[in-house]
Amino acid sequence: MTTVITRTTARIVVPIILVVAVSLFLQGHSLPGGGFIGGVLTVAAFTLVYVAYNLDYLEAGVLDREVDYDRHIGQHRTVAAYRRLFVFGLAVVVGSAVAGLFVGSPFLAQTYTYVHLPLFGEIELASAVVFDLGIYCVVVGGLLTIFSVVGAE
């Protein structure tokens, strides 16, 4: 799959996918979208990079780090980072779900407020974004761990 056509397409498409993913993630609490779908789209962008280049491109080509090819893929630094992202995301989800209990609200309760920023105008700040961020991290971390390990086999 690592043809010139795929690579060129990936170069153009990947940034677009990432931007759409972020916008879906940010609007998720009041419009269609959210952490899950944003995360899945992000994973799609990463997977496209993996398919068009290779599994080590992210580490060697983008981050410009040494890749230890002898180690099992599960021990690669990117995969370890995905795993940490997954655990971090889960902690954020649980933390934001429990947070309400400490201020006397029910489990998983969410709230929102409006703030006025110069240039931007009214902006809605929702606590659901924190929960969504956790889900986003779980989805990205979990799926990318699976894809890199299974992809290497």
Binding site: V87, L90, A91, V94, V98, F107
Partner: peptide, 14 residues
């Protein structure tokens, strides 16, 4: 809540 917290904590102290 008990199992949810335990499961997450068990992941964090892996």
């Amino acid at each position: 809540l008990a199992v949810l917290l335990t499961g997450t904590a068990a992941l964090l102290v892996r």
